[in-house]
Design a protein around this nucleic acid. Structure first.
Lengths: 123, 123, 123, 123
DNA sequence: GTGGTCTAGACCACA
DNA sequence: GTGGTCTAGACCACA
């Protein structure tokens, strides 16, 4: 399901959050999909269950998961997280773009890169 | 010269690096400008000189400062850091833009924001 | 694991970097080998953990180690450092050879020494 | 006579030693040439006379200069420093070559570089 | 005075 | 337990 990169400097729980978030945003995990238990995912990744729990908690807080006590964690409907995610990404993107401008990158360069990244994507 | 944000969760030395880097990249500190000594800047920010030292070290490593032992630290010529900075910013920008696309932001939205950010800037 | 030379005028952290680098380059420490913690190596060498930390940081920056926060530091795969190391060594070697030439050493003398150093080594 | 590089990390007195040594070894300063006074050279380089004094002391110790009290410092005859210099350079060269070998550089690579460095030099 | 190194000791996040 | 950060304080080389 996920592969951790031990050479990544971010804490493990954050990597887990990131990977799972991508799977959900990318549509690989559908609404109401039952997530593996913290224990079993911990086993699979050779990671302490506490670490998985922490990741699940954060995902729940950001609206990606919902928990039914005694039953487990499930993927939340897109409406729960879609706007928050888009909004946060846009804010981050604006900050980075601002910094890019200050570092001397031009509008033309960035537009060109943008075209490359969106190539073949229907908006 | 700079103001620390104690709500920022990043370590102090990293904030100092970031602020000073912005001042140098933004042109507020010119080539060969003598930086305050680690002791005096430490006093000014109510921070241990070692912490400032660490920031200066990192800035030197990234080409923003050069140090003459026993004399002080000075702002390096733009040629030392310009290209590295642009390159690193572009790489970061591409990653964030990629993530923005995955979060559902469209080319049109990003181009519109781009225009806003570069408004009135001659490329 | 290593022995410090207190007559050496280089700073301790640099000696530690040097010794560990040799162990890694020489193959004595294999990929993914778990390095001793900064605390335990500090104890062993009667040196402050901060000093070891500094050495580990530098080794990480040069690609010899990778760190998993809360787990420890590990030897990075050879691919991470091999090329950089060879390149830096070659540059240093060229400078020293240039100086040797200026000091009056001849091509013949140096080739002879070279043969001695590479004696019995299959290229 | 000499130009200092303030971005060089070595202490200034060491740079001065190095530059003057090169001038002497390279034959630009002949035997018994009267060196400028520490004061005047200090003025010329915008450097404290103490720093120059320190450089002169070291050069005297290595046999490059001799001092006649009240008269000044003079370039020593080649016989005073030639062998020591060659010997020290050869030792350093052997160490660096040994390290180059350990880093994976081959005899063939080094011989090729050697030919480049000695190109057109009569031994 | 200035940067560079080091120690002892503390507290934190993470696992 | 492990690395990461920070402080207070010390001593050194260099200028």
């Amino acid at each position: 399901m996920i592969v951790l990169d031990y050479r990544d400097k971010r804490p493990i729980y954050e990597q887990v959050v990131d990977k799972l978030e991508r799977l959900i945003v990318g549509g690989a995990l559908e609404q109401d999909f039952k997530m593996p238990s913290v224990r079993s995912l911990g086993m699979e990744l050779s990671v302490n269950p506490n670490t998985i729990q922490r990741a699940y908690n954060q995902l729940e807080q950001e609206g990606y998961l919902y928990t039914v006590s005694g039953r487990g964690s499930f993927v939340a409907p897109e409406s729960e997280w879609r706007d928050g995610k888009k909004h946060r990404m846009l804010e981050e993107w604006k900050l980075v773009t601002q910094s890019a401008r200050e570092a001397g990158l031009t509008r033309e360069e960035l537009v060109r890169e943008l075209e490359g990244i969106f190539e073949g994507v229907k908006s």
